[in-house]
Every structure is written in structure tokens, then in C-alpha cells.
């Protein structure tokens, strides 16, 4: 029961991007298209689940004083693995995400979950928490990517939505559009969460 709760909580109620406003760098940097957003979200989810698992499993072994360096080493290990695997099997995505693959290391969402949740909870719950938060992160990135792709190119996942007559809103493909799109989406999310009393 509580495992399910740990899983579902991260998707909407404690959504890393929309509610906690964490992990902004990759959120803004790689969401030019829905595809890149999805790829980044899933890569971060993989790292998050693995690091949560290992941190929870070792939570009674790692001394409190050096827990942060230990968490960082564990996270960096999984990030490097994801980096290598992407380069080997999904080279096109790897080239698109560029420097933001190694930078998953410093994504505050992952270190935050290791510190706040996985270091105090059993393995199963930690894995569920990782999946939930990861999916919420992926959802946020994919949505933002889809909105930006739709506005700047008239497509979502390369499928043409708005027809060939659409005059593209180019700025949403560039950095300023990322800030503005996320700002507007955050405001919308604030409004909706007040309406449905998520507080």
C-alpha cells in the first residue's frame, strides 16, 4: 500500500519540476522538442531509480559523516554508465543531449531524493519513489518539450499537428522561449493546483 503511495506521489503531487522547482537546467536546456525531453527524462529516471536502490541498500553501511560524497560517487557512477550506454546504442539522442548527460550528476532532484528519501527508507519504497519522481520529471520535460515543439515548429514528436499553413513561433525554439514557456506553465500549474486543492 505505502509502496504504491510512494510511487504515485512523485508524479503530480510532488512533481519535481512543477511543484518543487528542482532540476531546472536540463528541464530548460533539452526541451526544444518532445523527443529530447522524453529522452532526458528517461535517462534521469534510470539514474534516479538505480541510485535510490543502491543508496537504500547501503543506508546502514554508509556512515552519516561521509554520506554526501558517497551519494555523489554512486550517482556519478550511474550517470557515466547511462552516458556510455546512450553513446553506444542511441548516438543521435546522445549528440542532442550533449553536455547535459554528464550534468545529470548535479541534478538536484537526484541528490535530493537520495538524501531526503532513499537514505531513510527500505529498498522497495526507495525504488518506487525513484520511479514516481522520475516519471513526474519525464512527464514535465515531455510536456514542456511538446509545447515548445508545437509552438516553434507546429509538430509534436515530428508529427505535424498545426498544418503547413502555421507560421512558426520561432522564439520558443530558442533559450528565451524555454524560460517563458516554463514560467507560463508553472503559473498554470499553480492555478490548477489551487483549484483542485492539492496543497
Amino acid at each position: 500500500m505505502s509502496v504504491m503511495k510512494d510511487l504515485s506521489r512523485g508524479i503530480i503531487r510532488d512533481n519535481a519540476v512543477f511543484r518543487l522547482v528542482l532540476g531546472l537546467c536540463p528541464t530548460l536546456a533539452v526541451t526544444g522538442t518532445a523527443e529530447n525531453g522524453l529522452g532526458m527524462g528517461l535517462s534521469a529516471t534510470a539514474v534516479l531509480v538505480c541510485s535510490n536502490l543502491v543508496v537504500a541498500a547501503l543506508r546502514n553501511v554508509i556512515p552519516n559523516k561521509i554520506r554526501i560524497p558517497c551519494f555523489i560517487v554512486i550517482i556519478a557512477t550511474f550517470v557515466t554508465m547511462v552516458d556510455m550506454l546512450l553513446n553506444a546504442f542511441l548516438p543521435a539522442l546522445h549528440a542532442q543531449l550533449g553536455i547535459f548527460v554528464p550534468l545529470i550528476v548535479v541534478n538536484c532532484v537526484i541528490l535530493g531524493r537520495a538524501e531526503a528519501f532513499a537514505s531513510r527508507n527500505p529498498v522497495l519504497n526507495s525504488a518506487a519513489d525513484g520511479i514516481g519522481i522520475g516519471l513526474g520529471f519525464t512527464l514535465a520535460l515531455t510536456t514542456l518539450g511538446a509545447v515548445r515543439e508545437l509552438l516553434s515548429k507546429g509538430t509534436i514528436f515530428h508529427a505535424n499537428i498545426l498544418g503547413s499553413g502555421y507560421q512558426p513561433f520561432q522564439v520558443f525554439g530558442f533559450p528565451p522561449g524555454a524560460f517563458i514557456a516554463l514560467g507560463l506553465m508553472l503559473a498554470l500549474f499553480n492555478m490548477l493546483s489551487r483549484k483542485f486543492r492539492l496543497e
Partner: peptide
């Protein structure tokens, strides 16, 4: 709805 980070993001965009 815009208070806090949402507005900061839009300012950063400008």
C-alpha cells in the same frame, strides 16, 4: 499564480 519562480522565469526569458 505568477508569484515566485514563475514570474522570475518569464523575466529571465525577457
Amino acid at each position: 499564480h505568477f508569484r515566485g519562480v514563475a514570474l522570475s522565469l518569464i523575466i529571465a526569458g525577457i
